[in-house]
Write a protein that binds this DNA or RNA. Structure first.
Length: 328
DNA sequence: CGTTTTTGACCAGCGC
DNA sequence: GCGCTGGTCAAAAACG
């Protein structure tokens, strides 16, 4: 996250859900605007039953959790600023882009070690996409977002997605909205998990390929490396569940990995570093888009969370019961 | 029957 | 030149 968040009231990532505004508490650096309270504490005359007490305890817990998250966001924002200034320096010195140069789509291992050797921190950039994916590196916007490119004139269209999946899910399926046909699988030297090779099958002439491999460090993370640029639009949403399996999945049910809704600090760092990718007007446009989608995803995540729903329902029903005329 | 996946073989780049 | 490795091909299998 970056300071942009703090300046955008509509997209504030303040996570204090259902917590009464605490005037005495210093607001976290990242969340500056007045918190939106879903369950207003002063909604009704005070008459606390056991459910309300329990709910309050739950809200306190969530409050603490949110405070933690806010602190993490603050730390991430600080890191972002540091990286951004570093990036500005790098941008001012084009000679530092020594890894640039075109990479032909196939049989080019010479300059294509992106996948195997960890890139230097500044090049290891990740962005969360609305699908719960983490977009890394530069240049490629698989979802059609137009402005995530930087130094595209000197870099191949290579990007990475980091997808959190269930460890028990052995499939190498990354849901990104495109149709892919698997054409190979290989066990690589530095990772016991096999790497799967896919080609875009949505358009026959589409040159895009992707490699999917479980992270050696965290096998709940799938790393998808995209090469090339789609020469067609994104398939309609109805087809987005068929990724990897691309239509027929040979009898297997469509595997849809869980979105990255809970990121380890490691991945959050990546996400924060992502903001370094773009600067200037492109950065503004990209940031707005990304953050909007991030906020949407956050809302989606909350609404999908059964415990959150349960707490919300409990709170609302409790209030309604209190308001009920049958109550004496 | 058509399409996709699997998987062993093959090819090319790279380091020694 | 040789071996290692990653990437691709293509025949066979699997599936609806």
């Amino acid at each position: 996250m970056d300071p942009w968040v703090s300046s955008q009231p509509s997209l504030s990532l303040d996570l204090r859900v259902g917590v009464p505004p605490l005037g005495h508490r210093q607001a976290p650096a990242v969340a500056m605007v007045k918190p939106k309270v879903l369950v207003e504490e002063t909604f009704l005359p005070i008459k606390k039953g056991p459910e309300v007490v329990a709910l309050e305890a739950e809200l306190q817990r969530m409050s603490a959790e949110n405070r933690q998250l806010s602190e993490m966001l603050t730390a991430v924002a600080v890191k972002y600023e540091a990286l951004q200034s570093q990036f500005s320096v790098v941008s001012a010195n084009p000679s530092s882009t020594s890894e640039g140069g075109s990479v032909s789509p196939s049989r080019k291992r010479k300059s294509e070690s992106l996948d195997d050797s960890p890139p230097p921190p500044q090049q290891h950039r990740h962005l969360h996409t609305p699908g719960g994916l983490v977009l890394a590196d530069q240049t490629e916007c698989t979802s059609g977002e137009p402005c995530m490119r930087i130094r595209e004139e000197c870099k191949p269209k290579i990007s990475k997605l980091y997808v959190h999946v269930d460890p028990s899910d052995i499939s190498l399926v990354v849901k990104d909205g495109y149709q892919w046909r698997k054409y190979g699988q290989k066990v690589t030297k530095d990772n016991p998990c096999p790497r799967a090779y896919f080609k875009c099958s949505f358009a026959p002439s589409c040159p895009v390929k992707k490699k999917v491999q479980r992270s050696a460090e965290d096998n709940t993370i799938l790393v998808a490396t995209y090469e090339g640029e789609h020469n067609h639009g994104q398939p309609p949403a109805a087809q987005q569940n068929s990724d990897g399996g691309s239509g027929k999945s040979a009898g297997k049910p469509p595997q849809v990995p869980a979105p990255v809704t809970h990121l380890s600090p490691h991945h959050q760092e990546h996400a924060a570093a992502a903001a370094v990718v773009v600067t200037g007007e492109q950065a503004a446009a990209a940031s707005e888009l990304i953050r909007r989608k991030l906020a949407e995803q956050m809302a989606m995540t909350l609404t999908r969370d059964p415990s959150f729903k349960a707490a919300l329902v409990t709170a609302l029903s409790g209030r309604i019961l209190e308001l009920s005329p049958t109550k004496d």
